[in-house]
Design a protein around this nucleic acid. Structure first.
Length: 940
DNA sequence: GAGCACTGC
């Protein structure tokens, strides 16, 4: 194909109609010159509008027709030789219809409430508990518990929970609310002989905290996990007894459970912890619970938050009672930028009026950027005031007036680290918060090469979710005697990772966050100012074992004007999955439910997601779940990923598709080892088979891991995270249980041969990826050698680049046979990037794309998809495509509404149809793909 | 030529 492309190109050059030459041919005069350019621009316009010619060969067309029409498609009905039966069909029908009819209120009224008292159990639980209270281990743990601040509030807490349906409890880290509140309730029930009536769920935002809190609580109760305390997170659980128990689980788990049991019929108390973090699941859950408690009047809801914004939650729940538990942490001295400059005598590499760069200086002063205006309005006057007060050096005050003083300066941070290490002799680790990979890497190198941090006296760790640190455990262990531990971290150390012996914290003042920009319909990853809540959290990391010190790399004036809280996640992200979840919960019209949220998302963001879901055929025009939407809502993945999974099952290439789906929905397993970035990149490309597909690479990585004998060596050699890979493997297994429930497969083994008949067919797998990810399509403009010069997504005018982490990036490797790619994630950061991509040929796009249309132009027949993707074709091919597309869509619709698996071993109508579709969408050898580039820059 | 962090019976 690529060979043909080159010939085609050369031909054009010889014709003299070469694209992109700015000069007309010699010998033309006057009007002819004008005509030459007019004609050329016309031709260019035409070329720009079409992406190539699609033309099936006669033999191909015949073969496809034979397969399609071997038997009449209309005969394909429920009694055809397939494994699905009438009963299974009606099960689907019933659950589907019940899921689109009615609403949550009715569903709640129908739900059986299962909180019945079991007297003999009450007695048994009471006796067990009485006995436990005499246990020596329990008593010694109890002595510790008594000292926690929350213990003194025990009676008050129980009383307020007893008397109210909803309560907000606030308290800082160290007050013991997470471990104690649930136990107070449980113990009270057990003692009063009502144990069978008590089943407490306590949600945690993170998997690790769910497990570690459960372990801690079991320990305090002198028990093993699984008796009165347990946990449940995705892919892992250790459940306690049914009655008289506490389960710690992630918020997502409860939400998923509520899809089938919205009344939480087995639960007496639900505690939502860390609601101040404002994650999507916790925001969604507290809104949902407001509806639930109307029916479940016996259900107790306890909201737990940090003190900072707890009032807002009480207000949200109709001014419900609010109880604060005083916390206990060690005091932390706080310093700001002015103090740091004073201590270190640091001088910025300043460009001022005094050293000759007057032009640049003036430009900087006159900047009309809102950030500059804000700086001049608040920070500069503060610096002036400081100067007049005379407490700080004049030099310090002058430097604060430069807006560059608010940029992250690694030299300054380096000097501060030196200053801390030289002036503070006491033990204790130093934790530096930076925003991302590059900064961590740079500071790490700076420290390592400076000679001021010899390995005999210091141990330095970078900490980033994608860096494989030699031995993770060492980060948590106290440093060897006589050595100081320095950790350079992202915000992962803010909440997700806790290092106990930290005494010094440097807070760079910035945090990277994704933010969904509704106007450009893209996500952005930007470093922003931290909120006061983040700053407090970072500061708190210094006071866990003894008094600490925190240095904020911004002035007190800046501290006064930064936001108090981070924006809730729900107004920063795409809402596709959340909307689907609201639909399966039968919460009614989205425009009616979403405004009930504490911070409702922009209606534009809602509309964008509704549009996408309708385009995916998950919702109909009335916003009801379609049969496809019903399946997608049941699968615990993003809708496009779910669609890919269903197509993988239908086309019998499930194992590879599940691997890709798991990786896209969770994360890829590739690590970026500090100092070996290039090497890791090479290894990654090594296993990609040169197929111009990151998705294929994801499959290859997991597949090799699953089939390789020595997984450890494989992971080490290819810089892969074996933990991530093992999670991905478990996710595949989990998808199988869902597919089994939905009746798309007959086995729980993702590698079952009948489900993988076509798993070696890379073209088909790419077509299935396309079927799932559409409309995430981008069009490449290629240079003369077939390399991507510009990339434009079909959803807007914006141009993109392949992210350097993609195997499609790189100026020296990729030659594209087709100008079409499908992608899953695009993100604006330092540039506009498409993170993962698969090159696809036109036919999968033509068959799985929407808005199919046909036009007869003077040049011949044209077909287009989504208005923008136009291909030239012949009349014959157009007719075949049109006919087959209609039939294929009808057939796929039939498969979705009649879930069942295909027996590929016996010839059947259905198999013929599938084979025909396969033949068609994997036909790569079509006409020429016209993807040449004009030399001028105005293309697109 | 670059990668905040979470999460789903």
């Amino acid at each position: 194909m690529s060979k043909r492309y080159y010939n085609h190109k050369r031909q054009r050059d010889e014709d003299g109609d070469a694209p992109g030459r700015t000069r007309h041919p010699p010998g033309l005069k006057g009007k002819d010159i004008g005509l030459f350019y007019a004609r050329r621009s016309q031709a260019r316009k035409q070329r720009k509008e079409t992406l190539g010619t699609v033309c099936l060969s006669d033999s191909k067309e015949k073969e496809i027709r034979r397969l399609f029409y071997g038997k009449s498609l209309e005969n394909l009905n429920l009694t055809d030789g397939n494994s699905y039966t009438h009963i299974e069909d009606s099960i689907f029908k019933r659950s589907y219809l019940s899921s689109i009819r009615g609403n949550i209120t009715e569903k709640l009224c129908e739900a059986p409430i299962d909180m019945l008292r079991v007297p003999h159990l009450d007695e048994q639980l009471k006796n067990e508990f009485d006995k436990k209270c005499k246990d020596s281990k329990y008593i010694s743990m109890f002595k510790f518990r008594e000292k926690l601040p929350s213990y003194s509030m025990r009676e008050a807490l129980l009383k307020v929970i007893e008397e109210n349906q909803v309560v907000v409890i606030s308290g800082e880290t160290g007050c013991g609310k997470t471990t104690q509140v649930a136990q107070f309730i449980l113990d009270d029930y057990l003692m009063k002989g009502k144990g069978s009536m008590c089943k407490i769920i306590c949600t945690q935002p993170r998997r690790i905290s769910a497990i570690s809190v459960a372990e801690r609580v079991a320990d305090e109760r002198a028990e093993k996990l699984g008796v009165s305390v347990g946990y449940q997170i995705r892919l892992e659980k250790k459940l306690p007894r049914d009655h008289g128990s506490i389960v710690y689980c992630t918020t997502g788990v409860v939400l998923k459970q509520m899809e089938s049991d919205p009344a939480l019929s087995q639960v007496s108390h639900i505690i939502i912890d860390e609601i101040h973090e404002r994650s999507v699941p916790s925001d969604f859950l507290i809104t949902l619970l407001r509806e639930i408690i109307k029916r479940r009047t016996d259900l107790k809801v306890i909201l737990m938050s940090a003190t900072l914004n707890s009032e807002a939650f009480s207000k949200y729940y109709n001014n419900c009672p609010h109880l604060n538990i005083p916390g206990f942490t060690f005091p932390v001295e706080e310093y700001f930028l002015e103090d740091v400059l004073q201590m270190t005598k640091f001088k910025f590499n300043q460009i001022g009026p005094q050293n000759g760069n007057r032009f640049y200086w003036k430009k900087k002063q006159d900047n009309k950027d809102p950030a500059h205006i804000e700086f001049k309005e608040y920070i500069v006057p503060y610096a002036r005031q400081l100067k007049s007060e005379g407490q700080y050096d004049v030099q310090v005050c002058e430097q604060l007036k430069d807006i560059d003083s608010e940029k992250i300066n690694l030299d300054l941070i380096f000097d501060l680290v030196v200053h801390i290490c030289e002036s503070r002799k006491e033990d204790g680790a130093l934790l530096v918060f930076l925003t991302g990979y590059a900064e961590i890497s740079n500071l790490y190198k700076k420290l390592e090469t400076s000679k001021k941090f010899p390995t005999s006296k210091y141990v330095i760790f970078p900490l980033h979710s994608q860096m494989s640190t030699v031995d993770q455990r060492q980060i948590f262990l106290p440093a060897p005697t006589g050595k100081r531990k320095i950790i350079i971290s992202t915000n992962i150390a803010e909440t997700s990772v806790t290092i106990d012996d930290v005494v010094f914290v440097i807070d760079c003042g910035k945090i990277k966050m994704t933010h969904f920009d509704v106007d450009s319909n893209t996500e952005k990853l930007e470093p922003l100012w931290v909120s006061v809540a983040n700053a407090d959290q970072r500061r708190g990391r210094a006071g866990r074992v003894k008094p600490g010190v925190c240095f904020h790399m911004y002035s007190r004036a800046r501290h006064m004007i930064i936001e108090k809280y981070q924006k809730p996640e729900i107004i920063r992200v795409r809402l596709d999955s959340t909307i689907l979840q609201a639909k399966i919960l039968q919460l009614g019209k989205i425009e009616e439910f979403f405004p009930k949220l504490m911070d409702p998302p922009d209606s534009k963001a809602i509309q964008l997601s509704l549009d996408l879901l309708q385009r995916l055929n998950a919702l109909d025009d009335n916003e009801n779940l379609t049969p496809l939407g019903y399946h997608l809502a049941k699968l615990p993945v993003a809708p496009q990923v779910g669609k890919m999974i269903l197509f993988g099952a239908i086309f019998s290439c499930l194992n590879p598709v599940l691997a890709i789906a798991a990786s896209l929905d969770f994360k890829d397993a590739f690590q970026i080892p500090l100092g070996k970035e290039k090497q890791a990149d090479m290894k990654k490309r090594e296993i990609s088979d040169g197929l111009n597909s990151d998705h294929w690479l994801l499959y290859k990585a997991l597949e090799t891991y699953e089939t390789e004998g020595n997984t450890q060596r494989f992971c080490y050699e290819y810089f892969l995270s074996s933990f991530t890979l093992s999670q991905l493997k478990k996710m595949k297994d989990q998808f199988m249980t869902y597919l089994m429930d939905l009746n798309f497969v007959s086995s729980l083994n993702p590698r079952d041969p009948p489900l993988n008949r076509n798993s070696r067919n890379a073209s088909l797998i790419k077509a299935v990826i396309c079927a799932g990810l559409f409309p995430n399509v981008a069009v490449l403009r290629l240079d003369q050698r077939g390399r991507a010069r510009t990339i434009r997504s079909i959803d807007g005018e914006q141009r993109y680049k392949f992210h350097p982490g993609s195997v499609l990036s790189g100026y020296n490797t990729c030659v594209f046979e087709s100008p079409l790619i499908v992608y899953y994630k695009k993100l604006k950061s330092s540039s506009d990037f498409i993170h993962d991509a698969t090159m696809v040929h036109p036919l999968p796009i033509i068959f799985f794309g929407d808005q199919f249309s046909h036009k007869l132009t003077p040049d011949g027949h044209c077909i287009s998809i989504s208005k923008f993707l136009t291909f030239k074709t012949t009349e014959g091919t157009y007719r075949v495509i049109k006919e087959l597309r209609d039939r294929m869509n009808w057939f796929l619709e039939h498969k979705i509404t009649h879930p069942g698996f295909v027996n590929w071993n016996e010839p059947s109508n259905e198999m013929n149809v599938l084979t025909a579709i396969m033949e068609l969408i994997t036909s790569e050898d079509l006409g020429d793909i016209d993807n040449e580039d004009d030399d001028d820059d105005d293309c697109y």
